[in-house]
Write a protein that binds this DNA or RNA. Structure first.
Lengths: 234, 234
DNA sequence: GGTTATAGGATCGTATACAATTTGACCAGG
DNA sequence: CCTGGTCAAATTGTATACGATCCTATAACC
């Protein structure tokens, strides 16, 4: 699942794709802080490839909204503004009910089994402590929504959700409070239960409420103390 | 509005962006047929730039789904399969009701004025004949949906719709019948009227029906005679 | 001392060069 | 005539070279 962080990197086909995935994982996992400069030279040295491939990867990431490239200045890990964050969650509220209804059409026993498996894993992670566990929890939380998207069997929509979830993870990592809302997991379970009951209207309603809940739990004041200069650049 | 096809090309800043827009316009306008090979050398000669910039433009277009890049084989104007076309329209049905509801929240008199202006132009085009007029009509039809998306004030969603409309245009150009459904324009008008009445439920319902209508008017049989080999490649 | 001018280094943007892969033609063999 | 294989041309993939822009430190001037 994790495309980066494999051993024996030298033996692996190091391509633009690989670099892109590695950087994306690092951003979503918050190993790369928002605003960090991604120097072409540095990255190319790190992966032992030419700048050509790195530029391709950075450009691709900018299309996904995870990296901002500024002409003649370089690429930076995205530092989504509160407004941008709001738009991301607003977009999710607009499309996820549709995804839920579409996925429900294809729901068979095996799909419910996969969902339950994911929820079990998610619950297990919530019991743990530490930063690593928290990262895994954020990731698992996103995976639930991604799995629903994949169950639509619609690749176009799935790609949109990939992007939205990745950007959401970045936003949560940025503006998330230390006190994690533990109700997210419960809401996931409730949504699955409602789908299983066939009560899609209430499931959709809860989904919107759930996304709203995630957003409301963020502390989206401008400039969280540190990178003041970022706010005034450009 | 049309970013390409400007006079005095030599004096304009010919960048990756410009090449990308030019090719996209050509694809959406169907001046470039689906399946056409976009040789890096040829395109670079055409725009009098190096292959580097062309590669960037082609890669960008592949993210938008308008171009397929096959490793070591080159870039081709997308030839969306019927399945892919179905997914595009399915995605639109999933998200456009959400857009409509969100846009309605911001609707003031000036927005309705802009919509009506667009509809007038659309109606004017329907009276005309010829291939040019038909292209303009397809474009205008997409512009209606794009305008609604822009009225959400949500840049993230707007970008998704940009992509979906562009790909839809390609699909319509590919699988569209000679007999154009003239009810699309009427449905646009009805949707606006329903929004103005405040009857969003019916407006959403009609929107879904409208998208469905566009899709149903296509003749999506595999292999429209010509490119048989495309169907079996990769 | 503070401000502006300027020079140097660092970084990005574009073009070009070279390596790797594909493609299509030609030819030998069945 | 068809099949299969080999080689050359064409095209893409990647690396490198060079020019342009930006940032910073230093110094001159007010």
């Amino acid at each position: 699942m994790n495309t980066a962080a494999r051993p024996f990197e030298d033996q692996i086909d190091v391509s633009t794709q690989y670099i892109r995935d590695s950087i994306r994982d690092a951003i979503v996992d918050r190993r790369l802080a928002p605003g960090t400069k991604l120097s072409e030279t540095d990255v190319s040295a790190l992966f032992k490839v030419s700048r050509t491939l790195v530029r391709g990867a950075l450009q691709a990431l900018s299309y996904e909204g995870l990296v901002n490239v500024e002409k003649n200045r370089g690429a930076f890990v995205a530092y989504p503004s509160p407004e941008e964050a709001r738009q991301i969650f607003a977009t999710r509220r607009m499309i996820e009910p549709g995804i839920l209804r579409e996925a429900a059409k294809n729901m068979g026993p095996s799909y419910f089994e996969r969902l339950r498996q994911l929820l079990t894993e998610e619950g297990r992670l919530m019991g743990e402590r530490g930063q690593t566990a928290r990262r895994a929890e954020i990731k698992a939380s996103g995976d639930f929504h991604l799995m629903l998207a994949s169950m639509t069997g619609n690749a176009v929509m799935e790609r949109f959700m990939d992007e939205l979830v990745a950007r959401s993870s970045l936003v949560i990592a940025l503006y998330g409070q230390s006190a994690i809302s533990s109700c997210g997991h419960q809401e996931h379970q409730d949504i699955v239960a409602l789908i299983e009951c066939g009560d899609l209207d209430r499931a959709c309603h809860l989904m919107i409420h759930h996304i709203d809940h995630i957003e409301k739990d963020l502390d989206m004041r401008e400039n969280k103390g540190s990178d003041l200069k970022e706010a005034f650049k450009l």
